[in-house]
Structure formats: C-alpha cells, structure tokens
Design a protein around this nucleic acid. Structure first.
Lengths: 145, 145
DNA sequence: GTTGGTGGTATCGAAAAGAGACCATACCTC
DNA sequence: GAGGTATGGTCTCTTTTCGATACCACCAAC
C-alpha cells in the first residue's frame, strides 16, 4: 500500500525527499541544515507574496505595500531587508527630491519563482478540497456545543 | 531586459504567477484569497518538516518529535491538528495499554510532496549562494564596528 | 515504589508580529 | 506661509504567538 502511494511521486521528488530526510535524521540541527535554514526564510509569511509582487518588474516600496495589501510598513521593511541580505532582491535608491527606492529580483531571486509557482499552483488546485476537509473536521470535532 | 529575465521561467510557472498576481491585485484580502490562506498554512515553520518526516511511512507522535528534533510537544500537537483539519494527515488511535497513535498522509497530503520537493531541491542547490550573499551583505552593511 | 514510556494539556515568560504615530524633505495649493 | 500630499522609513506600544517546562493518567518493568 505504502509503496504504491509512494509511487505517485515523480522519481526526482521522491529522491529529493529521501535525501532531505536522511540529512534531517542524522541529528543535524537547524544551524547545520542549510535547507531548513533557507526554507524557514522563504516560508516567512510575507516573503512569498513580496517575491511574487516583484516577479514581473521592479517595484517601489509603496507599490509593494499597496500590492500586498495588509502588510505593515514594519514587516515590509523587515522582510525586504532579509531578502536583500539573502541575495534575492536588490535595493536601489534614486536621490530624487523625495527619494525613491526600488526593489527588484536578482537572478537568484528569479530562480525561486519556479518552485514557488509549483506550490502556488498546488494551492490553487487543492483549496476547494482543503476547505471541504476543514468543514468536515469542524463538524466532526464540534466547534459548536 | 525584464522580458528576457521572465523568459527564464517555464511557461507554466510564469502563467501561474500572472494568474496569482492578477487575483492579488484585485483588492482581494486574505479571507477571499484561498491561495494565500493555504500557503500560510504550509509555510508555518514546522509543517514542511512534519510532512516530510511522514512522507515514506506513518509515524507515531513520539517518533515525529524525535525526527524533527527541536520541536516542542505543544507545537507538534498544534501543527498536527491543523494538518488533520486541513485533510493532509489522518490520526489513528490504537487502544493498546499505553495508547499509541499514528499519523499518516492522506492522498491530499501526499500530493503536496511534489511541489514541496521542488522547493527543497531549490534550497539545497542554492544555499551556498545564499550564504555567500549573507556574508557579503554583513560585510558591506557592517555587523562589526 | 520509583523510574520510564505512551500522547498529550496547562501554564507562564519570551519573542515576534501588527497598528499606528512620527520624521525630514519638498512639492503644490490656497 | 499654513496646510495638505507623497516619499521611505523608524520607534513605540499592544496583541499574538512560540518555546520550555511541569503535569496528567495509564501501565510495565525493575
């Protein structure tokens, strides 16, 4: 049974997972597991939204804030700094009268869009199923009395 | 320039991103954007680790805790409940003398492993580049005096 | 009888996120 | 020249979340 289920995965995916599980299993902590380190960053709530917002062309600070919608300046600044530090985006300041700043993806930043799109596609395909599961669970476990 | 950079992405990826950006741009808030909703869950720090830990075969509570390593029982319980509610894992209780519980992926849960593996693969490939970027940034911006 | 393992929950302090005020600048309007 | 707008942030305060730990009931082995 389990074997067949595993068989659903593309070979490359299964291999990546095995490799990753092997590394994780060897008592490697977060500091020593670069994959976890990187994934924690990418998974940080706003990162994905910001990367996607910049995906087609450079954006200014305020444009990003408008586009993402419900992010605070504080978190936007913080996330952008992290992305810049990790080499995924570059920040450019133009010394105009009110200084303007734009953020754009680097090659590294662009390269993450492909796996990200895979995840976004999955979410888009499955969200109905997930919402149905949630409703069923809430009914079973009883939100109500 | 920008066109060429976009050209690096596979067509399907670019399409998914455009579609997502379009949705996000239309003043849709989190509640109305199921993709964001789903991605927030999957991105939740421990989710990915737990899913991968279960990827090959069912795991018991304590096995998961050992395998993930530095997760607390509290967070493990919480994350597992969420995954169960979202229909990604099932929880089975065996009424043995000390009751044992196992968690296993559903079909839906297994289906997310493929995009997840894409991201993990990316992280594995790029972490050297990212760490180099961080060091360069810290030197530029000066952690030291 | 005390220790260990099962799968958790309850509690509490620390860390992180969100909301919003504030800032320096300079432009435009009246 | 007072007021409003916009730029890209920072600073502070409050709320939420997280992590560590203690504890529970159960039973088995020692």
């Amino acid at each position: 049974m389990t074997r067949e289920q595993e068989g659903n995965l593309p070979d490359t995916a299964a291999e990546v997972l095995r490799e990753f599980a092997r590394m994780s299993g060897e008592g490697v902590d977060t500091a020593n597991c670069p994959v976890r380190d990187v994934l924690d960053r990418v998974g940080e709530k706003w990162t994905l939204l910001i990367l996607v917002a910049m995906s087609d062309e450079p954006r200014r600070f305020s444009a990003l804030q408008r586009e993402v919608g419900d992010i605070s300046k504080r978190m936007l600044t913080q996330t952008l700094r992290t992305l810049e530090r990790d080499g995924l985006v570059t920040r450019t300041v133009y010394p105009t009268k009110p200084p303007s700043v734009d953020y754009r993806l680097t090659g590294l930043g662009r390269s993450v869009l492909t796996p990200l799109a895979g995840l976004i596609g999955w979410a888009g395909q499955k969200h109905d199923e997930i919402r149905a599961a949630r409703e069923a669970y809430d009914e079973r476990e009883g939100v109500a009395a």
